[in-house]
Simulated assay, not measured.
Amino acid sequence: MALSITKTHGSQNDILVIDGAPTDHFAQPDIARAVGLMCDRRRGFGSDGVYFVADHGDGTAQAWFYNPDGSAALLCGNGMRGAGRLLLDRHQAESVVLHTGPYAFTVRAADTTSHGVRQVAVDLPAVDFTPAEPIVAQAEGSFVDQLLPAFHPSRRVTALAVPNSHLVSVVDTYDEADLVATGTRVATTPDVFPIGANVSFVLPLAPAEVFIRTFERGAGLTLSCGSGVAASRAVLSRLGQVAPEQPVVIRNPGGIARSWLQPEGDVWRPVLEGNATKVYSAQVDPQVLLGDGPVEYVGEAYLDEVNAFAALNSENRKVLQEAGISLTDV
């Protein structure tokens, strides 16, 4: 059975969405190899990860996410935008629910921008500042706004789960080389960070407007990280910099989004709103993905959607340039 693949992106965090469960197409031991080739930007399709989505046919689905190195992850917030948008279109619905692990994610249709960019809003699971599996070894209770030399010699950091693990620093200047070095330290210091973590630097630009960039576990520096946005948004409120319900404009190198928190009892549930753009769709024989590539395919490109987003993001990039933020595209 051919693999039906749609390349999507949320803030240029490009994710391949595949119909069906991973084991519908590959034996369990082969999944990581196939994902690695699909994500390879020279030999495969090129992406920041893969979502497999088994549609239940009733507006709900089961989803599995894999990083480019083939490792499984509980969540890719930007990828959830693309996967959810495809289900919204298929069922002509205003909202759908995707299940992954023990979590359920509601994806709702949001306003289309003046540029013609389709947007969705994703209701994410509650953030957890005291996760059962510690992000920082031997940390007792929450780890909020603390110095930790193994992380960085001078930047304070907050640890939280969204539900995947994150380390967030609010900074007064942005240094990309410093972010890469910090993310690399976290990835290579398992005695301090036993489960690894995504690392985000957050630079306030104006009231209720910030720049965020994330060094992702298993992927490295990316143009945007949806769960990194949600984690960073929660940290801003935990540090008292903005009220939970206040929508905050989020600028990434890959695009612009908004995020806010929904208080429910003593927890916060983040909402991530932004583009969910289709790039192209294609079909490929699964056996091809167990070879060495390059992968050859014929597909349909969605140029109107690609061009509409390009116009929107050119405005975002201009704002970042005027703010003096120096970036390396990936």
Score class of each variant (00 low, 15 high):
Ser47Gln: 05
His56Cys: 00
Val120Ala: 05
Phe26Glu: 02
Ala257Gln: 15
Tyr103Gly: 03
Leu98Pro: 00
Tyr51Ala: 06
Pro194Trp: 02
Gly228Ala: 04
Gly20Asp: 04
Val229Glu: 09
Pro294Phe: 10
Gln138Gly: 13
Arg43Val: 06
Gly46Arg: 09
Gly82Leu: 06
Val235Arg: 01
Asp329Ser: 14
Ala206Leu: 07
Val284Gly: 08
Ala181Tyr: 12
Leu261Arg: 00
Leu88Gln: 10
Ala208Asn: 13
Asn275Ala: 14
His91Val: 09
Gly10Met: 03
Val229Phe: 09
Ala73Pro: 03
Met80Asn: 13
Phe143Lys: 01
Val180Leu: 15
Ala187Ser: 14
Ala32Gly: 14
Ser232Gln: 04
Leu75Gln: 11
Pro270Tyr: 01
Phe215Met: 14
Pro247Val: 00
Ala54Arg: 13
Val248Leu: 03
Asp329Phe: 15
Thr277Phe: 07
Leu75Asn: 01
Val319Ala: 12
Asn164Gln: 11
Pro294Gly: 11
Gly36Asp: 10
Val122Phe: 04
Thr184Leu: 14
Phe45Lys: 03
Gln241Met: 14
Pro190Ala: 11
Thr113Pro: 00
Val199Phe: 06
Ala137Thr: 07
Glu264Arg: 06
Asn164Ala: 06
Ile325Met: 09
Val144Met: 01
Pro163Val: 00
Val168Asn: 03
Pro131Lys: 00
Pro270Thr: 04
Pro68Trp: 08
Pro204Gly: 04
Gly265Arg: 01
Gln321Cys: 13
Ala126Pro: 11
Val107Trp: 05
Arg251Ala: 10
Phe65Lys: 07
Gln287Leu: 13
Ala323Tyr: 15
Glu216Asn: 09
Thr100Leu: 11
Glu296Gln: 15
Arg217Ile: 07
Arg217Leu: 08
Val202Phe: 03
Ala230Thr: 02
Ser71Gln: 14
Ala310Val: 12
Ala243Arg: 09
Ala301Asp: 14
Arg317Phe: 13
Ala219Pro: 03
Val248Thr: 10
Val50Phe: 02
Gln262Ile: 15
Phe65Asp: 05
Gly240Asn: 05
Asp111Ala: 15
Arg43Cys: 12
His152Asn: 13
Ile135Arg: 00
Pro253Phe: 03
Ile256Val: 15
Met1Asp: 14
Val157Asp: 06
Thr130Phe: 04
Ala61Ser: 02
Asn252Trp: 07
